Amino acid sequence: MVRVSVVVTTKNEAANIGHCLASVAAQDFPGEALEIIVVDNGSTDDTKAIARTFTDLVFDQGPERSAQRNYGMLDVATGDYVMFLDADMILSRTVVRRCVELLDAAGHVALHIPEIVLGADYFPSVRRFERSFYDGTVIDGVRIIAKHAFAAVGGFDTSLTGPEDWDLDKKLKGIGTIGLLSRYDFDAVDAYVSHLPREGFLDALTGFENRSGLDVPLLFHNEAAFHLGRYLKKKTYYTGSAEAYIAKWTREDPDIARQYGAVYRFFGVFIEQGRYRRLLSHPGKAFGMYFLRFLVGALFLARRTRQAPSA
């Protein structure tokens, strides 16, 4: 029987970890073949206590999420496939099973999983809209990987913080193919999650395939408590390793050119493969998306300017 290890990294995530692990435990995948691993980083709240109600495999490791993930996925995991999640993520019920089915059938070494940002307010809905354009592109990042492939490429590069997901994708592409688990109708999914209550939404998400009438496996990311300042601070922090990542692969690399090129990041990814229709049909969300992209881009350029050596 194929075995899957799901690794969740945490630090003071008591408000989220219960929902995340409950969604993993609720998968329609044989329980004896599903391993839940939590790798904490010195939480001072009830994160670990809550995690232990779902699994005995709770560990401490640091200093960053890449080291936590590598520890859980390489040193602890016993699965044929390893999946990594953040504590504020929730899986719909069929994700793990369908990932395994596709990986086995297609022979991919890893899969991207469509990620739906939660929240009914304006900016969470804008983030949900923006994220819908990235599935399966060079802006996306894998979530489930054949363990032998993850080990073969050495896991995450712990010297990078931010672009380590992109770096992992590039290493995996060197030894195999990466697939996309599923595609979905944005308007239908957007309408469903926009009407969820702020509390008590877990069943609506774990049971998404049945309750929504849309038989699509999805990963939900809880960004409902959006705060512009925190969002920009997080984005700025994760651009800190950008130059090291670019130097590792060089600016001539086609993926790098897209990931850090203004033309692709501001226009190409939103219009290719007919996506421009979605862009044009949601002008309000498109405006908010470009507002956020402009702020993030301006902060990135400002940081590069500050770090540039003086003449």
Results as ranks from 00 to 15, higher is better:
82 V>R: 01
87 A>P: 02
88 D>F: 09
88 D>H: 10
90 I>N: 05
91 L>I: 10
92 S>N: 09
93 R>M: 09
94 T>M: 07
96 V>G: 08
97 R>G: 09
98 R>C: 08
100 V>W: 00
103 L>R: 02
103 L>C: 04
105 A>Q: 11
105 A>C: 05
105 A>F: 09
106 A>G: 01
108 H>E: 08
108 H>Q: 05
109 V>R: 00
110 A>M: 08
110 A>H: 01
111 L>W: 04
111 L>F: 04
112 H>L: 03
113 I>L: 08
114 P>D: 08
115 E>D: 14
116 I>Q: 10
116 I>S: 06
118 L>S: 06
120 A>V: 03
121 D>C: 04
121 D>L: 14
121 D>W: 09
122 Y>T: 09
123 F>Y: 14
125 S>Q: 14
125 S>C: 13
126 V>F: 04
126 V>G: 10
127 R>H: 01
127 R>V: 00
127 R>N: 00
129 F>H: 02
130 E>C: 06
130 E>S: 14
130 E>Q: 13
130 E>R: 08
131 R>A: 12
132 S>Q: 07
132 S>N: 12
133 F>D: 07
135 D>Y: 07
135 D>W: 15
137 T>G: 07
138 V>N: 12
139 I>D: 03
139 I>P: 00
142 V>R: 08
144 I>S: 07
145 I>A: 05
145 I>S: 10
146 A>N: 09
146 A>K: 15
146 A>R: 15
146 A>C: 15
148 H>M: 09
149 A>C: 03
150 F>W: 03
150 F>A: 07
150 F>E: 01
151 A>M: 07
151 A>S: 09
152 A>N: 07
153 V>R: 08
154 G>S: 02
155 G>K: 02
156 F>T: 05
157 D>A: 06
157 D>E: 15
158 T>R: 10
159 S>L: 00
159 S>T: 12
161 T>Y: 11
162 G>C: 07
163 P>Q: 10
165 D>Y: 14
165 D>C: 14
